[in-house]
Simulated scan of single mutants.
Amino acid sequence: MQFSSLGLSEPLLRSLASQKFEQPFPIQQEAIPAILAGKDIFGVAQTGSGKTAAFVLPILELLQKAGPAKSRYIKVLVLVPTRELAAQVADVFKEFSNGLSRRINTLAVYGGVSINPQMMALASAEIVVATPGRLLDLVSSNAVHLSAVEMLVLDEADKILNLGFQEEIDKIFALLPPRRQNVLFSATIGDDVRNIKETLLRDPLLIEVGEENQQHELISQVAYLVAPERKGPLLRYLIKQHNMQQVLVFTSSIRTADNLVGKLSKNGIQASSLHSQKSQGARTEVLQKFKTGKLRVLIATDLASRGIDIEKLPYVINFELPRSPKDYVHRIGRTGRASAKGEAITIITAEDQHHFGVIQKKMGKKVSIVETDDLDLKGY
């Protein structure tokens, strides 16, 4: 199937071609025509399945055929869990907006930065990609009004709810007009997501792309069993021995992330951390350096990782296990994306073995474990 058969106009098809999009992913094949037809969507899809373009393209198609929005009365609202994801989704809108028949302004709004520039920019925005807390701040300041929203998108709804935004979400829903189109995407289906699905969506089209299992087939997984005091040297050994030039390392705490940066830097390995205690400007800068290959190692906590979307990231390393098997799946899913192969490495100690067994059982995949007692880590 080709994009030309999905109901998209020539300007968007040219934009797709210029960005080397050749064939639509399964979720795009189903979602784009349905959104263009005005259907509500409930999509179960992992990050990396192509879901962002699945709603961005039809939204732009619909808006370019309509008149401009009244100042501060936005037409499309996209809610996301993190600052990084807000910026990332807004960038996709902007990339595909080039060449349209009329200018459609998209704005990402999130906390951690000054609110005043966002308040000013909202005067001309038709599409807003927002984290819930900052959006409510802007609403309370009369910088934006939600009464004219024609389409609501909840992206990564499970993560939004897991982060404790239920109260904010309820307040936002109460401000929206009752007649609108709704699109809901979630990687998992828990009770909270089911409740939102029942109250938010009208006769939705269910799209399950099965991308998670397909993606896992592209990811080579291996675990290394090591004594706790040898974890740092093993990490440095793996990076140097495999000559890894772009590797994402996960830790469970901010302290560990910052400590690893210091140790790697002292050993001649360029590294930076990404976590919630860094300013938004610092987070944006380090993420851009990593995406463009100017930073060798990025060390991230789970929350910060939601905005990391790199099409051909070769390596992910779990320096510490996450508490949840779902978080493990999300972590390793940063690699093996867009049909590109990737490698996921996990460093475990004897204390981690039971929990890692639980993760493997939930994932439905056995991971080989390599003993490292005989490995000479001197000098690392």
Rank of each mutant, 00 (worst) to 15 (best):
R296C: 05
H275Q: 10
K312M: 05
G262L: 06
V222K: 12
D192A: 07
F250R: 01
A300T: 05
G190K: 04
S273N: 07
L264R: 02
L274T: 11
T199G: 07
L201T: 09
L235Y: 15
V222G: 10
Q288F: 08
K294P: 03
L298S: 02
G210P: 09
R236H: 15
H216N: 15
H275F: 05
G190M: 00
R283V: 14
N243R: 15
E285F: 15
Q221A: 11
L264V: 01
T199Q: 09
V286Y: 07
L287K: 08
L260G: 06
R194A: 03
G190Y: 03
A227T: 14
D203N: 13
T301R: 05
E217M: 11
T188Q: 02
V226K: 13
I219Q: 06
H242P: 11
V297L: 00
K294Y: 04
Q280Y: 12
N182G: 04
K197H: 10
R255A: 11
K197R: 08
A271G: 01
Q181L: 06
Q288L: 09
F185A: 06
L238Q: 15
A271P: 05
Q288W: 12
G210Y: 11
K266V: 04
V249Q: 09
E211H: 08
I196A: 03
V222I: 13
G307E: 00
Q288K: 15
L298A: 00
Q221N: 12
R236Y: 14
L287G: 11
R236W: 14
R296F: 01
S265H: 03
D192K: 09
A257L: 02
G262D: 04
L303S: 05
L234S: 15
E229I: 14
